[in-house]
C-alpha cells in the first residue's frame, strides 16, 4: 500500500488539471441535463410511461459518464502514459505493477462517481429528481457497469500503440454506444429497428440496468444485463492481461 494512496491522490489532481477530461466527465452531463430539462421539465408524461423526463434521463446520463470515462478517459490516459514513458518510469520503482493499474481504475472510478454525484445533485436541486429505487443496489449496478467499461478501456489501451490511436478507437466505439444505447437520447424516441439494434450495443445494457434499478426493479429482472456486463468485464480483463505492454 506504500505509495499507492499518494499515487491515487496525485492522479486525481492530474485528472482535474486536464480541462477536457474533466469537462466530459463532470460537466457535459450537466449541460445535457439543463438543455433537456429546460425543454421537457420533469413532469410525469405518458411519453415516458408516466415518468418524468429528468427521472428517466438521469440514470441514462450515469451510463453516459461510465461510457466516456471507460472508452475515452482510461484508454487515452493509459495509452498516453505508455507512449510517453511514464509507465516505464513508474515500473522502475518498487511499486507493484498491479498498483499502477489499480490506481488508474480507482481514480477514474472516483471521477465517475463524482460526475454522477454532481449530476444527481443538480437534477435534484433544479428539477426535483425522484429516486424510488435503493441506493445500494443502484451503486452496485453502477460499479458493475463502470468496471466493465473500464476493462474495455484497458483493452483499447492495450491494443493501441499511441494515445492518438486509443483516442480514435475510443471515439469510434463511443459514438454508437452513446447514441444507440439511449444514454444521450431517450430510447422512447427511437424507432423499433434501432431499439432492437441497440441490444447489440454494450452501453445499452448499462442504461437498461441503471434505469431499472433507479425505479426499484428487482435485480432478478435484469439478469441479462448483469450477465452481459460481467462477460464484458471478464473479456476485457483477460484480453488486456494478455496483450498489455508496459512500453
Amino acid at each position: 500500500m506504500r505509495g499507492f494512496a499518494k499515487l491515487a491522490w496525485i492522479e486525481i489532481k492530474l485528472y482535474l488539471r486536464q480541462p477536457e477530461a474533466a469537462f466530459f466527465t463532470l460537466f457535459f452531463p450537466l449541460i445535457l441535463l439543463f438543455i433537456f430539462g429546460s425543454i421537457y421539465g420533469n413532469e410525469p408524461s405518458p411519453f415516458f410511461n408516466g415518468r418524468g423526463m429528468v427521472d428517466v434521463s438521469t440514470p441514462a446520463y450515469l451510463a453516459m459518464i461510465i461510457g466516456s470515462v471507460g472508452l475515452l478517459s482510461i484508454a487515452i490516459a493509459v495509452a498516453g502514459y505508455r507512449e510517453k514513458g511514464v509507465l516505464r518510469r513508474y515500473r522502475a520503482t518498487p511499486l507493484r505493477p498491479a498498483a499502477i493499474l489499480a490506481s488508474e481504475v480507482i481514480v477514474h472510478f472516483l471521477m465517475t462517481l463524482l460526475g454522477g454525484a454532481l449530476l444527481i445533485a443538480a437534477a435534484r436541486i433544479v428539477y426535483g429528481l425522484r429516486f424510488p429505487g435503493r441506493a445500494v443496489v443502484l451503486l452496485a449496478g453502477f460499479t458493475l457497469g463502470a468496471m466493465s467499461f473500464f476493462a474495455v478501456g484497458f483493452l483499447l489501451a492495450s491494443v493501441a500503440r499511441t494515445a492518438r490511436v486509443a483516442f480514435i478507437l475510443g471515439l469510434v466505439l463511443y459514438f454508437p454506444n452513446l447514441f444507440l444505447s439511449g444514454a444521450a437520447i431517450p430510447k422512447e424516441t427511437f424507432p423499433q429497428a434501432i431499439r432492437s439494434a441497440g441490444k447489440f450495443i454494450p452501453l445499452t445494457h448499462v442504461v437498461d440496468l441503471l434505469q431499472g434499478l433507479w425505479f426499484g426493479d428487482p435485480i432478478g429482472q435484469h439478469l441479462t444485463e448483469i450477465a452481459v456486463l460481467t462477460g464484458l468485464l471478464v473479456l476485457g480483463v483477460v484480453v488486456s492481461a494478455w496483450t498489455f505492454r508496459w512500453e
Binding site: 506504500r2 505509495g3 511514464v86 520503482t93
Partner: peptide, 21 residues
C-alpha cells in the same frame, strides 16, 4: 527515455517517488 505526466509538478514527483520506498 522516460517521462512523467505533463501536469505533474516537480515537488509532487519527488514526494510521490519518495513514498514508494
Amino acid at each position: 527515455q522516460s517521462a512523467l505526466p505533463d501536469d505533474m509538478k516537480v515537488w509532487e514527483a519527488l514526494d510521490l517517488f519518495a513514498s514508494y520506498y
